[in-house]
């Protein structure tokens, strides 16, 4: 292990890790937003829109992110739509993540029993109140675990961004391997960088899940 090499390139790795976190973070947040909107459209069975959501979900879930990114980054410019690597990364991740988040939110909404909604109705709560005070709080609890799993999945998927020349961790690693051939050092730094990002997130999520599920039967 060449420690001076590691010391020399740690700042570069830190920089690209930051890019991974930023793009991944923005993409994940937008995914949640997209997912929530899609889930609500499905939940309330809004005509026309619900079919669009279904089509989108199927397209997004049944194609790989790298193919989606290639289409955005290399394909769309030929149709006159030029996107930067960063924009492609965020749009691609949101396109992919939105459907996963939608399924999780929708499933969580489905866990709230019909009896709960009927009871709210009999208490003279209107539709908005029913959602606000009865459905959402219970669904939110059910959504935590799958949403956390999705976030980790999406953060891992960001490793594909290098394919559209986004200077993330994979890109830096590949670049350095090509230049110096210090594969052992570079790959170790790559793994450590991903672990430094993913382990804390995964740790926080398990704590969160444990907290949410406390006192639950």
């Amino acid at each position: 292990m060449d420690w001076s090499f590691i010391a020399e390139y740690t700042p570069l790795f830190a920089e690209s890790a930051l890019l991974t976190i930023i793009i991944g973070g923005i993409g994940t947040l937008l995914s949640m937003l997209t997912g929530l909107v899609c889930a609500l459209i499905k939940y309330f069975r809004i005509p026309v829109l619900k079919h669009i959501v279904t089509a989108y979900t199927e397209l997004s879930r049944n194609t790989p992110l790298i193919v989606q990114l290639f289409f955005l980054y290399f394909g769309l410019p030929k149709a006159g739509i030029v996107l930067s690597s960063e924009a492609c990364g965020i749009i691609g991740l949101t396109f992919l993540g939105g459907s996963y988040m939608a399924e999780s939110f929708y499933a969580a909404l489905g866990t709230v029993l019909k009896g709960q909604i009927d009871s709210a109705d009999s208490l003279a709560l209107n539709r908005v109140q029913t959602m606000r005070y009865v459905v959402f709080p219970q669904a939110a609890r059910a959504a935590v675990s799958p949403i956390c799993a999705n976030v980790i999945f999406l953060l891992k998927e960001t490793s594909v961004f290098s394919a559209v020349s986004l200077a993330d961790l994979m890109y830096t690693a590949k670049d350095l391997i090509g230049m110096y051939y210090n594969t052992t050092e570079i790959l170790s730094m790559l793994v450590v960088s991903y672990l430094l990002i993913l382990l804390p997130v995964s740790g926080i999520f398990s704590l969160l899940e444990r907290r949410i599920n406390r006192g639950r039967i």
Binding site: M170, K174, T184, Y194
Partner: peptide, 19 residues
């Protein structure tokens, strides 16, 4: 699970072969 699959591919293709 915790490491992205692409990283595993790199480890196998570039790392293990060299080691």
């Amino acid at each position: 699970r915790i490491v992205p699959q692409l990283v595993w591919l790199f480890i196998m293709y570039f790392g293990i072969t060299r080691l």
